[in-house]
Amino acid sequence: MQEVQLMVTCLCDAIYGEVAISTVQVLEKLGCKVHFPKNQTCCGQPPFNSGDWENSKLAANHCISEFQKQDLPVVVPSASCAAMVREGYKMMGLGSPLVIYELSEFIADKCQLDSVKTWKSYPHKVAFHQACHGRSIGLKDQQETLLRKVPNIQLVAFEQAEQCCGFGGAFCVTHGALSEGIGLEKLKNIKESGANEIVTGDMGCAVHLEGLIKKHQMNLRIRHFSEILAEVLI
């Protein structure tokens, strides 16, 4: 049995608990034993992206020491946190102290999906939004490929699908109008495609898009791909 440690991410810790729960459930269904280092906090990405590397290092060092207590790979349901640990730590001179995988990457590389014989159907029209930070860890179409395996799911194409949602961490507040413009454009393109659900792999995009959806009272809901997998894998 594979053993992994879960990095829950700040956003799931604070808001999107269901995503973290689904992540554990999916990993378990695929035969992994999941550990949760309870003293974990944040990987340090928010201050890092804002240029405050001093404060970022404090958080990063705490993160490293908590996950180094066990010599197990780390799995995280967010490409941007994975990118932070893999690339950001290097840039700050902290080296590569942890082995970390983004969830879909871990499933594609390390798990036997075929071991799950029956999949429930998921008859929904879904727009898949690829979170940009996957680019920096070389993530290709692993998330989309997983979704395509789900029976009866309808993945709809939409205009400028590859474009960023406009979140960008502190950018969404320091450059609020731009961020909003880009986000609304994305939502408009998705609405026009006829989808009523957005699926993504990063809750950063979700927290921003959801804030816009609610403000503009659009009829769209956002889910993490792990939530769908947790539902359909039996």
Binding site: I15, Y16, G17, E18, V173
Partner: peptide, 19 residues
């Protein structure tokens, strides 16, 4: 700045640590 353009996210569903 956030609130000017978006609503504040609220927790939906369960809290992970509690679960």
């Amino acid at each position: 700045s956030w609130l000017k353009r978006r609503t504040l996210p609220t927790r939906v569903g369960r809290d992970f640590r509690g679960w």
